[in-house]
């Protein structure tokens, strides 16, 4: 299982849902709600990078921890990502006073 994850660069919906331990329909809803990124091939099938499993885990934790609805989760994850990007910029430009 973990070998397949490493080798395949992208997972299809069923593989990804199995790896995340969730129903494929729920994963499809995450994508429709714009809180999970996926690539769509010309046939309309969804493909996921294995790193997206961490994004699904974060959605689950936020929902469990704060009882957020999915719209709010989208907002929170966007904000968290923006903060992470800002912090990374601060770190590398030496924003720390010395």
């Amino acid at each position: 299982m973990s070998y397949a994850l490493v080798r395949a660069r992208q997972l299809d919906l069923d593989q990804f849902a199995a790896a995340a331990g969730l129903h494929p329909e729920l994963i499809r809803r995450f994508v429709a709600l714009g809180i999970l990124d996926a690539d769509r091939d010309p046939g309309g099938r969804l493909w996921f990078r294995p790193t997206q499993l961490a994004a699904v885990a974060r959605i689950q934790r936020l929902r469990a921890g704060f009882a957020l609805n999915y719209a709010a989760i989208g907002l929170v994850t966007d904000l968290l990502d923006q903060i992470a990007a800002l912090q990374a910029t601060l770190r590398t430009t030496g924003g720390r006073e010395r």
């Binding site: 469990a64 921890g65 704060f66 009882a67």
Partner: peptide
């Protein structure tokens, strides 16, 4: 504590945060 409370029902295994 993380997943036992409100709204947390039904999740299976959830990977840890960074």
């Amino acid at each position: 504590g993380l997943f036992g409370g409100r709204g947390g029902r039904g999740w299976g295994a959830v990977p840890g945060a960074d």
